[in-house]
Design a protein around this nucleic acid. Structure first.
Length: 280
DNA sequence: AATGGTGTCAACCGCCGCGAC
DNA sequence: TGTCGCGGCGGTTGACACCAT
């Protein structure tokens, strides 16, 4: 998928990356780490601009990337964060481990926008759409999974009637896996019917206690008031110093077990073992 | 089977902020 | 203070996949 390869006047290649180029880039970064991106193509033997190398690495080759569609819990988090931050995809991506801003942006534009419209929510303002709005198909079910709450602190340009979609708190059971079907109608229904146990299931969480020990996950799911009080300008990394020390002393497999799912591409595919990334 | 419409997403483009000088 | 280089960000593009007719 992508564009046809081409070169500009300076002989810099554009278009889709080949496996050979990927291998060169990965090999270089594993050996040298991420340094001056401008120097990377020259040193790695690539006819690409540094920007292209950086993008390829951060959006596709990084070993800590999750693959596949966003699950319902991640999607809900994106909606919540978007209500707070607007189109600041990098800020949103920073709160979703293993996801890139580009991925989230694409997912928003192709899936979530439509889903919100079907739910009767304006994807730009997060306001409920007017009832006489032909685009509005808001559900009337009072058991609707999401609570539409009045926000007291909202992005610039928001109106007095701005609402934020907030996920229900996670509970302790996990009954069935939820689908991330791309079918918009069934997807909406699933979304509305999915209970909070499904949500925790989506992140591989079996119970509240099971993620209490994971500082990042527990941060993501702790009191939703945190989301309402979220202030991007003063936000700090949610780990305590102790957590951070613990994190740094573990391998990436221990800290990020979902990365093991990525091993069939991006690491072992290129002849590297996971030790390479521990060394990094 | 052929055609046209729509969806998906990797990749590019242009702008901006920041630090160095 | 102004300029430059760099990295990062968000918006957009366009090739391919998929589906409906």
């Amino acid at each position: 998928m992508g564009r046809q390869p081409c070169c500009d006047k300076l002989g810099v290649k554009k278009g889709p990356w080949t496996a050979e180029e990927d291998k060169k880039l990965i090999n270089f970064i594993i050996t040298n780490g991420q340094c001056c991106w401008r120097a990377v193509p020259k040193l790695a033997g690539l006819r690409r601009c540094g920007k292209s190398c950086r993008l390829r690495w951060t959006n596709y080759l990084r070993p800590d990337l999750k693959r596949g569609l966003l699950n319902d819990a991640e999607e809900q988090l994106v909606i919540d964060l978007h209500a707070r931050l607007g189109n600041r995809w990098s800020k949103i991506a920073a709160r979703l481990p293993g996801r890139t801003d580009n991925e989230i942006k694409n997912h928003w534009n192709t899936h979530i926008k439509k889903k919100l419209l079907k739910m009767g929510i304006d994807p730009v303002t997060h306001q409920t759409l007017q009832k006489d709005d032909p685009n509005s198909q808001a559900p009337k079910d009072k058991d609707h999974r999401h609570q539409l709450l009045q926000a007291d602190e909202l992005p610039a340009g928001s109106s007095d009637h701005h609402v934020v979609v907030v996920p229900a708190p996670a509970v302790s059971t996990c009954s069935s896996s939820s689908s991330s079907s791309s079918s918009s109608s069934s997807q909406t229904d699933d979304h509305q019917n999915m209970n909070s146990s499904d949500e925790s299931c989506c992140l591989g969480i079996n119970s509240e206690s099971s993620y209490e020990n994971d500082p990042l996950i527990s941060f993501l799911f702790r009191d939703t008031n945190d989301l309402l009080n979220f202030n991007d300008d003063t936000w700090e990394f949610p780990f305590s110093d102790q957590d951070l020390d613990s994190f740094c002393n573990k391998s990436w497999e221990e800290n990020c077990p979902w990365l093991l799912d990525c091993q069939d591409f991006g690491v072992h595919d290129f002849g590297f073992d996971t030790q390479c990334f521990n060394d990094m």
